[in-house]
Design a protein around this nucleic acid. Structure first.
Length: 279
DNA sequence: CAGGTATCCTGTCCGC
DNA sequence: TGCGGACAGGATACCT
């Protein structure tokens, strides 16, 4: 979504770092302080004077690849925004780039500072890192690919949140995908058979494509790269609806903490694979 | 190995 | 109106 929206606005254009926020952000392998660390200044300033040749995305990470080979990856975390729009909020801006030929700057802002930027010396270095840290991209995951990582005793919900297994699924869309596939989030990975793995892969692609098409889920702060609220939250069948009746079967939706995250599901529609369901 | 928990931050909402 | 606490879209370090 963000990549699709920004691509026509920044590719082929040059960047100037116009402003840097007062705080440093997470830079891989570095701690954070209240002031600016050298790592942060190096990362945030990396694309100063660079011409953007393309944008690449895998999972939740977006890479801006410069014509001279420099690469800057942006991760938004929980509250991050990357936008080129007239109404980008002025607070919590961490990097502001002037984009040649564009009236409005490109802004990376993130109130909670869970996001960050990571510099790479080349596209090769970028891909090497991504291959090591990220699994197959969720927007195009296939049944066999998912089946290959569905091993072990952990809950399938935990696997969906593991970016090394599948890259790009977060808490909302993990729950929505499991609902669409009719799988109980507590199901152990190894209990998910091949056919259900395919159904889950289909569900993940469907849910994410829908979310991309509708601009993502705006619960509060989220905005598209053009500054508009998303609409995907209107499609939520289970996320944030614990206690309400299931849209499919009417049973009351349950919730529990799983893999450290609030998890909602329908006890009627979603079942554990394999053995007979038990309380 | 895998699960739970704490941690990094700020903003918002709710109950008192 | 103010205040404390719970909670939030993510990721990781560190326990057990």
């Amino acid at each position: 979504m963000i990549r699709l929206a920004l691509e026509p606005l920044v590719v082929g254009r040059s960047l100037r770092v116009e402003e840097m926020g007062p705080h440093d952000m997470r830079a891989r392998g570095e701690g954070r302080g209240t002031g600016r660390t050298k790592a942060w200044i190096d990362a945030a300033g990396l694309l100063d004077g660079a011409r953007v040749s393309r944008l690449e995305r895998r999972g939740k990470r977006l890479a801006m690849v410069a014509a001279d080979g420099r690469v800057l990856v942006v991760q938004l975390g929980m509250s991050g925004q990357l936008m080129l729009a007239p109404d980008a909020a002025a607070t919590h801006r961490h990097v502001t780039w002037r984009v040649s030929g564009q009236r409005h700057p490109l802004v990376f802002r993130d109130p909670r500072r869970f996001g960050g930027v990571t510099p790479y010396a080349s596209p090769e270095a970028l891909h090497e890192a991504w291959d090591a840290e990220l699994g197959v991209d969720a927007l195009s995951v296939t049944g066999p690919q998912l089946a290959a990582v569905l091993r072990g005793t952990r809950a399938v919900k935990a696997l969906l949140l593991d970016q090394r297994a599948i890259a790009g699924v977060g808490n909302i869309y993990a729950d929505e995908s499991l609902f669409l596939a009719g799988i109980d989030p507590r199901t152990r990975c190894a209990k998910v058979g091949r056919s259900r793995a395919r159904e889950l892969a289909d569900a993940i692609r469907t849910v994410l494509r829908r979310a991309v098409r509708t601009g993502g889920s705006t619960l509060r702060d989220h905005r598209t790269a053009l500054g508009k609220p998303g609409q995907a939250q209107q499609l939520h069948a289970v996320y944030g609806r614990s206690g309400e009746p299931c849209v499919r079967c009417g049973a009351l939706l349950r919730s529990a903490t799983l893999a450290g995250r609030t998890t909602a599901w329908c006890p009627g529609c979603q079942r554990r694979s394999g053995a007979v369901q038990k309380g």
